[in-house]
Amino acid sequence: MTRISVSVDGTEAVDEIEPRTLLVQYLREQRGRTGTPVGCDTSNCGACTVLVDGRAVKSCALLAVQADGAEVTTIQGLANGELHPMQKAFHEHHALQCGYCTPGMIMAAVDLVGEVADPSEQQVREGLEGNLCRCTGYQNIVAAVRDAAAEMRGAS
């Protein structure tokens, strides 16, 4: 067992874990962050995307021990009293159907907009290349991200 200390959605935690524990497993099973789903076994789908020290990563492609000392933000840590602009835009644009990809889409999109404040449609599509959606056809997701980006520019 290895001891790690991480901040998860603003709460400091110290835990003893097996080194083989994936970050996503740790988040779901030990920190109750079941808002972060697992969508695949191959690190392709992006459903498990969270922010580690502000950067989007696939939490199934990272050991929890690798996040030792880091600040992790999941979809459950994004809203601050009210929905984050990205969450609101996904809601308003009907950018989800089954919703399975949504937590990862939103975290990846927040990361993208943090780097590219006003992404073009092409930049959104490429920026979300690591996130797969089986339902929506992406159209509304792209619209939601661009809309949220506009709101986030206005808000800052």
Partner: peptide, 9 residues
């Protein structure tokens, strides 16, 4: 290479 998330790590 890979995708955005992969390039971060």
């Amino acid at each position: 290479v890979g995708d955005r998330q992969v390039r971060h790590l």
